[in-house]
Amino acid sequence: MKLAISIAGQTIDSPFDARFGRAESFCLVDSDTGAWTVHANPALSASGGAGVQAAQFVAKLGAQAVVSGAYGPKAYDTLSAGNIQRFLAPGNEARSGADILAAFRAGQLTEADGTTHGGHHGG
């Protein structure tokens, strides 16, 4: 499965970024083979609607699931519309994209069953 993990850095060993819309980048990894690429998040500098933009971006990358620390309502709706699964990983532990992949493979991640926060306001 193609998984997009929000990270802060350039490689799969970079730290996990608990933010979705404002994540620094996304690590797109094939959970079966472990092959990965990193893509800068174009929504990082968005004035508003970062979650919507990031969700469309990972959809275009072909992700079938994402892992992040939180999803605002618009990101959640956009990802759902694209049939992209939304997994949650706690943001308060220091760990890397590779650790997140391992946790995913071990079935330790929970799926977000709704919006995790009310969204931010930036307009």
Binding site: S47, G48, H121, G122, G123
Partner: peptide
Amino acid sequence: ENSGKLVT
């Protein structure tokens, strides 16, 4: 404009 974003 965008004072909301700056407040955030």
